[in-house]
Amino acid sequence: MLKVIRDLLRYDGRFRVAFIFLLATFIMSAISYVSPQDPGRTFQVPLDRSPSLQYPFGTNSRGQDVFWWMTFAVRNSLYLGLITAAVSRVIAIFVGLTAGYRGGYVDRILMSVNDSFVVMPVLPLLILLSFLFRGRMGLTGLGVLMGLFGWPWDARLIRSQVLSLKERSFTRTAQYCGAKDFHITIFEHLPFVLPIVFATTINNMIWSIGMEVTLGVLGLSNVTLPTIGTTIYWANAHQAMVAGIWWWLMAPVVVSVVMFLGLYLLSQSVNEYIDPRTRLRRIGA
């Protein structure tokens, strides 16, 4: 693992940028644990101070240090993204591999469920559900909920890949080795599907964090929890733009740009690295 990171750092410019951006993001979310400020409390610092050495991101109209607030926001948004990605990956891989490999009626049933999810209007549904569960739903709940909606496109992608792998002779060889279906799926097909899984994981994280921003801005997520979305919600609620407290909005924008770019570049570079063709080149083919 360390060697992989070293190789990527040395030979891939995209990975270097991604590494720096994501490291910054992780450090930020990590130091939230040593924050001197409790994000739940207000009026702890002077109001509306512009960025300075003492308050690097300034302070907001609620008397909170925006920098420390953002450390919690980044941590929560990342957490949410990871939960969503994890839940939806599990479903996407399971559905994609099973539908693709088994074919027949299993495929037809899974794909009709899949397509129903594809056509479902996710945003209105999420708004409705968030409204219903408002206050009772924590970040984990929201993450799982979004995970339940975030898999169908990726499952289709994985399925189509498996459909073509199934026709390759090595799948037939594995069958004549007496391998069970599960074994074939995991050992023969999964390695070829991994690049898709990885790319879609990161896209999925970006989607889920972005979706939370939408819900947050609308005030539909739990606004007492600091996230990138709720930061913008509070800034709007206090009319930060009108009041000229631009740093209150600037902070979430800059942080999310750094995070999204970092994630995007990471997916690009790691994807190339784990692509079977590149892997083959590395083992010397």
Binding site: R168, S169, F170, T173, F187, P191, F192, P276, L280, A285
Partner: peptide, 11 residues
């Protein structure tokens, strides 16, 4: 099978 380069998973 016919194609030796596809008979076994290259990975």
């Amino acid at each position: 099978f016919q194609n030796p380069f596809d008979t076994f998973n290259p990975l």
